[in-house]
Design a protein around this nucleic acid. Structure first.
Lengths: 345, 345
DNA sequence: CGGCGCGATTGAATCGTTCCAATTTGCCTT
DNA sequence: AAGGCAAATTGGAACGATTCAATCGCGCCG
């Protein structure tokens, strides 16, 4: 019956068609594709020719079903519109492409519901590995994922319980050096803008800033919590600060990332506030656009691409040896980059 | 035997386990999941309870194999590091999430080989739809994809042969209005920086610029071809212009996108060239960072998110009715945004 | 010259779900 | 009360590849 159909509708070629054309069995075609060493060179060539002639493309669903696992790697980033995360993704991509493993990129946009739906997807797909910068409380989900055979590596976030391997950048240090820098140039009231407060990166950077201010003695942190971390949130945050009574207005802003910092810069400039004279600004990430901003932005540089490639490499290790008893945590160091937005006294 | 294994290794639950626990057949569970209307409310509840208790997650590979098609949509963008494309992607995401269709995002990084490997992936996965901004010559691949049942919509690029539906932004108009603007503020020699020249967007914008210059009479276009279109390419392109003999040096630059424009701005500023006095600059896309640049950048605004959502919507239409005889081309209009980089005479 | 061993090849079972046709259940109509 | 009909449920055959044990050929050694 299939044969009759073939005459009418040019059906898509399958292994058995390739096998028939090459004069071998389907099993041999499969071997040629997956274990070429097992097949004699002559047969290999004949099969390859048949594949080309028929334009055969294997059906991944069937393959995965039988194999039990998906070759692809899933990644969930916090915000695809933030150049920091696209840089991380590129680092990941570079490593995975070399292994010819497809990368499935999902954007949680800092929304737990979207994060969850991507986790659902990855779980249904039986991904072999997942890279995630978590937003919501997903530890249970990740544990289940791992129990089902999907390896997990946390990106830019240490696992509290230390149960998952992770690659992160030292946010404590970053928060500290940014704050110390502002204190050193003589600022005392520092507005910290970012959020939501529950986000690990925000929490840690803020805590480190507070610690540094306390240690200094006369420093003080004013926290303005935002819902997300883009330029719009930055503009909103700056407006909050400007509404404060004159005496409570900060003389510096520490933005939780560069997008926020750029928004702050815009709003302050628009309001006639001089940067850095009246209010200094420091951002975080050192995205490419920080240097080319109206007033070039000081920032805490994070090695984004390196973070990505380290995470991908680590994930591949975990996949290769899931039972590997050692959970590994790699921490990279951030670096202070001083530009005009915090220049001079 | 499976039962014995179950006692030892807590195997992952499958439909038949859920069915057994709920006291129904696997077929009913499947119906509950896929055609709830066919199942009585009481049974539905029992099955749901069983699913929750066992933590059942369906195996997408098996599902796809039987269903013959993947519910997900694939998208290949030119450059994930370009905010324009991430904006487009967000527009797409918004539409797809509402339909609860996963989006698989691939980055060709303007490399034909990567584009091809993503097409391979999408073909193997039997995606139900693909959105693509092509780099290389992939028309044959796309045709094959379509013949196999994957719907295709081109983004930001009209299909020459008009055989695929597309959503694009009028590059001819964009090239024209940018050039006319430069001519109007008195510039005559315009450096066009972008590439590779084969890229549709570059080709069209450049041609439109040339046409506008010709029509004007005394305008002239100097084309500097770059390999890619990021800030680094912009810096390189600017250096090429600066190396020209004084008399041949342009008095304006039309950058093929804003990333390039920002690079040009950096390099010119570094070389002591005054913008816009000595050389005016206009970019393309009007990404968010254009407005907050050291010298706020004039640009040709493209409605990126709108482009994305239009493309996604169109793709869903095509998927719903692949035989729909009408190939549709939607074209959106760009808009001139004048800022300081082309201000004054 | 027969048997042995080894690489190459194959048949048939299998992965977990969906789909179709067929069956059962329960209710309404006459 | 019997027949008919719709709704709910079910058994079992797909989907298309991979895998493993079993078979086939063939050269070589004793």
């Amino acid at each position: 019956m299939l044969n009759r159909v073939n005459l009418l509708v040019m059906a898509v070629a399958q292994v058995r068609d390739v096998a028939a054309l090459a004069g071998v069995s389907p099993a041999t075609v499969s071997n040629a594709l997956n274990h070429p060493a097992k097949v004699s060179p002559a047969t290999l060539a004949r099969i390859q020719a048949a594949i080309d002639e028929l334009g055969y493309i294997r059906n991944d669903a069937a393959r995965q079903l039988r194999a039990g696992t998906n070759h692809a790697i899933g990644m969930i980033v916090l915000d695809i519109a933030n150049p920091f995360f696209t840089d991380v993704a590129r680092g990941v991509e570079d490593v995975l492409i070399a292994e010819s493993r497809p990368l499935i990129l999902g954007n949680s946009a800092q929304e737990p519901s979207r994060e969850t739906s991507y986790l659902d997807l990855f779980e249904q797909q039986r991904m072999s590995g997942v890279l995630i910068t978590p937003v919501g409380d997903v530890m249970d989900r990740l544990r289940r994922l791992r129990d089902r055979g999907t390896s997990v590596v946390l990106v830019d976030r240490m696992s509290r319980a230390k149960e998952f391997s992770s690659v992160s950048i030292d946010d404590k240090m970053g928060g500290r050096i940014a704050t110390e820098h502002l204190l050193e140039i003589g600022r005392r009231r520092i507005g910290f803008i970012g959020g939501p407060a529950g986000l690990a990166q925000v929490k840690t950077r803020l805590a480190a800033a507070r610690t540094a201010a306390e240690k200094h003695g006369s420093g003080e942190i004013v926290f303005v919590e935002t819902e997300t971390m883009n330029a719009q949130a930055g503009r909103w945050g700056a407006e909050q600060l400007l509404e404060l009574p004159r005496k409570q207005r900060p003389d510096a802003v520490f933005a939780a990332n560069d997008l926020v910092a750029l928004g702050v810069l815009q709003a302050l400039t628009l309001a006639g506030v001089r940067v850095p004279d009246d209010i200094a600004i420091i951002g975080y990430d050192d995205i490419e656009f920080a240097a080319s901003a109206a007033i070039p932005l000081s920032s805490v540089r994070q090695p984004a691409q390196q973070l990505g490639s380290a995470a991908a490499t680590l994930l591949l290790d975990v996949i290769a040896d899931p039972a590997g008893s050692t959970v590994k945590h790699t921490t990279l160091k951030p670096e202070l980059v001083v530009r005009r937005s915090t220049a001079g006294a």
